[in-house]
């Protein structure tokens, strides 16, 4: 108990939590290697892999030239062969040039081979607006990729989950897309010394309330926290569910919360049309229509390419003010 209390004080950065997950798993399993742009000698474009080259050497921490389609495919075949690759995309925006490999090969290999070859691989990197990077570099890929059966998508919102979910991802037998945010890499949070993992498909209840259910994942969870603070000033309290993974999706926890609050707002950084929010609302309508006292609502990024100008980008995101307005519109 004492030790746990002491360890409970330990706080580290999001990027350090990711690094710890990879490092600890690599020490236990020599099939694991990290491959990507600038991961080795540069110590990571965002310093996630800092120091890993020194510990594991160039055979396991491997710099790739800028060839996403090439190195994504290389990793996929290595996973089929029996290794456990972690492939870093500097940004998920750049994964689009590897779309054929990550969408056609990784998630379909098991099916196409009639169960002969799975693809235990983790693709990870920054997702969503990084900060005035403009439209090509600010992709939120979760809506686009969640459409594809055969893959799993994890989106942590804090360092604890970053480490626990990444360990689960590395140990999983299926391809996992692991979505981080450049804007959260320096966030600090409690991460215990002890070994732990966070399972896929189990949402975390971040706040408890009675008037509305807020569903989110990744960076927008923080926008929801801000919104909840503001709404509490009005006497409106919300359940805030952090989904942690969008495929699998813990719809049971959503329905359970909805039965208490009877109102739901889904906050998702992807564009609104056919988004993860759309999917959540579809499932809510199918599974708990009778529990709804108001139309289910979504808050997404605005339905335009990500803008560059600071004020436009800030307006574009699913920020707290949008969430507050939406919640108020259905909670009277």
């Amino acid at each position: 108990m004492t030790a746990a209390t002491t360890n409970g004080d330990r706080t580290i950065q999001f990027r350090e939590a990711l690094r710890e997950a990879m490092t600890e798993e690599m020490r236990q399993d020599e099939r694991i290697f990290l491959l990507g742009e600038e991961v080795a000698e540069y110590n990571g474009a965002y310093k996630v892999s800092q120091g890993m080259l020194d510990e594991f050497g160039p055979n396991r921490i491997i710099d790739s030239p800028i060839s996403e389609n090439g190195f994504a495919g290389l990793g996929i075949a290595a996973a089929m062969y029996g290794l456990r690759p972690i492939i870093e995309f500097m940004s998920w925006s750049f994964s689009l040039v590897a779309a054929d490999q990550i969408l056609n090969n990784a998630p379909k290999m098991l099916y196409m081979s009639g169960g002969q070859w799975g693809c235990p691989i983790v693709f990870r990197g920054n997702d969503g607006a990084g900060g005035q990077l403009g439209s090509t570099h600010s992709w939120c890929v979760e809506a686009l990729f969640a459409n594809v059966p055969g893959l799993k998508i994890a989106i942590p919102s804090d360092p604890y989950d970053a480490k626990g979910l990444l360990k689960t991802a590395i140990r999983d037998e299926d391809p996992v897309f692991f979505l981080e945010s450049e804007r959260m890499l320096s966030d600090k949070g409690h991460v215990p010394e002890e070994e732990y993992t966070v399972p896929f498909g189990k949402a975390a209840l971040r706040r408890e309330g009675s008037d509305c259910t807020l569903v989110s994942f990744g960076r927008p969870v923080h926008f929801c926290q801000e919104a909840c603070d503001i709404l509490e000033g009005d006497g409106i309290t919300c359940d805030l569910l952090d989904m942690r993974t969008v495929r699998p999706l813990d719809s049971e926890s959503i329905v359970e919360s909805l039965k208490k609050t009877n109102r739901i707002v889904v906050v998702d950084q992807s564009w609104p049309f056919a988004s993860v929010a759309s999917e959540v609302i579809s499932q809510v309508c199918e599974k708990a229509f009778d529990w709804l006292d108001a139309p289910p609502k979504r808050v997404n990024s605005d339905d335009v390419p990500a803008p560059y100008a600071k004020n436009l980008e800030a307006a574009f995101l699913p920020h707290a003010e949008k969430i507050v307005t939406t919640v108020r519109s259905i909670v009277r």
């Binding site: 055979n59 495919g73 290389l74 075949a77 290595a78 062969y81 290794l83 056609n104 090969n105």
Partner: peptide, 28 residues
């Protein structure tokens, strides 16, 4: 390791098979 339907998609996989075989031999 398959028959692959998308023209050229198997070529990065070919590199990956060689990589993995080499890794298995040299690292493991």
């Amino acid at each position: 390791y398959g028959g692959h339907g998308i023209v050229g998609a198997q070529t990065p996989l070919g590199a990956g098979l060689a990589f993995a075989a080499k890794y298995e031999h040299e690292v493991m």
